[in-house]
Amino acid sequence: MTAGLVEVHGVHKSYGTLEVLAGIDLVVQPGEVTVVIGPSGSGKSTLLRVINHLERVDSGFVAVGGEVVGYERRGDTLRELRERDVLRQRTRIGFVFQSFNLFPHLTVLENLVEAPVHAQGRPRREVEAEARVLLERVGLSDKADARPRQLSGGQQQRVAIARALATKPEVLLFDEPTSALDPELVGEVLDVIKTLAHSGTTLVVVTHEIGFARELADTVVFMDGGRIVEQGPPAQVLDHPRHARTKAFLDKVL
C-alpha cells in the first residue's frame, strides 16, 4: 500500500545561478503530517512546488504513491510526460496556496466543482453533492453561491482547502496557508487543517506556526539554504534541536 507515500530523492533545483534546492532527500509516510519550517528563502515553498511538478527539477526525482511525478518509467529510461498526463497526476496531489488563488469570477461551489468535473470527468451532480458536504466540513455551507471576494481571508482559505479536497487527493500540500491572513483569522484555518490530520490523507505543511507543528506534526523538517538541516518528531526538533542553525531559527521565532 503506497498511496499517499511521498518520496523525494536527490532533488536539485536552481533559478539561474541561485541553487534553491541543493540535494533534498525526504520520505513522508502515508497519512502522516509533516511540517516544514525554516527561514524565508530556505527553499521550503520550492520543495512543495516540486512535489506537484509546478516546478521542474534539475536532477533527482519525486514520487507520489509510488509513481514518479512528471515522468514515466520505461525500462531503464525516465520519459518526460506530456502536459496532459502531468495534469492528470496533479489531481492526486492537492495544493493550497498562501494567497488562496480562488477563481474570483466563479461562485464558491463552481470553484469546487471545476476540477472534479473537468479534470477527472466525474458526473456533475455527484460532484456537487460532495462539494456541499465539503463546504459543510469547513463551516461554509451557507456560502456556496457567494463569490470569493465577498468572503473574509479566512473563509477564502477554507474554501481553497475544500477545493483542494474536491479531487480526493492522496496528498495535500499547504504553502504557508495562514501567512496572508489577519492574526485573528489564523485559528479558523488551522482548525480546518487539524480536522484533516490523520484522516488518511498525507499532509505536508510549510508554515511559521510553530505551535501548530508541535501539536500536530508527526515529523518536523527544518530547512536552511536549500538543504534539510534536521528532521524528526516535534519533541526532538523543536525542543532539543541538534543543530546550531535550528536552534538559532527557533530562538528567533519562538
Binding site: N52, E83, L87, R88, R90, F95, N101, E114, A119
Partner: peptide, 27 residues
C-alpha cells in the same frame, strides 16, 4: 490575469484548453 490563477488551475489538473477558456479568458 494574476499568475496565481494560472498556477491554481494547473495545480488542480484542469486541462489546458479549459484553463484558458474557463479560468483565464473570462478574467
Amino acid at each position: 490575469v494574476d499568475q496565481g490563477q494560472h498556477e491554481a488551475a494547473a495545480a488542480l489538473g484542469i486541462p489546458r484548453a479549459r484553463q484558458q477558456l474557463r479560468i483565464v479568458l473570462p478574467q
